[in-house]
């Protein structure tokens, strides 16, 4: 039996799913092959531990507040994306205004529902603009893609850090404003990236 054949049978070997002849062949092989023996020992070591992992982990916060506002969008995305950039721009203005209101009226406590709603809309807009960018991506030169995507990665890293900080300190209005700013930069950047094809 080869190493590949033995590896294909290791889970069955541990689970007693092999017939006696295969079991004997695996046993003989692992007695002489250090690599396969290490794989068998690792699988055995982890089997019970992995089975004990939690399969259901409640999120630390109720995520529904960030989902519900996004359900209002049409279920089927329009196949013609021409109106998307204008729609996203309108959303950006509306969203910014709503967040401004939320930031101004909040003082303490958990993440404001208005803020959560608006952030959900930013998420949805970014998701759909990213889809749009993916459609034009192949028409761009590798150098252009590299520049765009490296810059976007920087924006996303900043956004991720700001969101993490806000989760740790949900009453911090400065962090909230930083998150909003990062979302706006991401939306604006994606708008520009997705419109490159039409500009060229």
């Amino acid at each position: 039996m080869t190493c590949d054949q033995v590896r294909d049978r290791l889970d069955g070997f541990l689970g007693s799913a092999l017939d006696p002849a295969e079991r004997s062949a695996v046993t003989r092989h692992v007695a002489e092959c250090a690599e396969c023996r290490a794989d068998l020992e690792a699988a055995r070591f982890l089997a019970d531990r992995t089975a004990g992992l939690r399969r259901d982990i409640p999120p630390p916060a109720d995520l529904w507040a960030g989902i519900a506002p996004r359900l209002a969008a049409p279920r089927r995305r329009l196949s013609v994306p021409l109106g998307w950039l204008a729609a996203a721009a309108v959303l950006l203005v509306v969203g910014s205004s709503a967040v401004t209101v939320a930031v101004l009226r909040r003082s303490t406590g958990a993440i404001d529902p208005v803020f959560a709603t608006t952030e959900a809309r930013y998420q949805q807009a970014a998701l759909e603009l990213d889809d749009l960018y993916q459609r034009v991506r192949d028409s761009l030169t590798p150098d252009t893609r590299l520049v765009l995507e490296r810059n976007l990665a920087v924006i996303e890293r900043a956004l991720g850090e700001a969101r993490s900080a806000l989760r740790a300190d949900p009453a911090n209005r400065t962090l909230e404003a930083i998150v909003v700013g990062a979302w706006r930069r991401k939306i604006e950047f994606l708008e520009r990236a997705a419109s490159i094809e039409r500009e060229s």
Partner: peptide, 26 residues
């Protein structure tokens, strides 16, 4: 809970897992 557990184990951090969980349900 089941979706968040999956996202938490595959994502880079808990915040990203929350965002991915929301994306999944949308």
């Amino acid at each position: 809970g089941r979706i968040y557990a999956l996202a938490l184990r595959l994502a880079d951090d808990a915040g990203h897992a929350e965002q991915l969980t929301q994306d999944v349900f949308v």
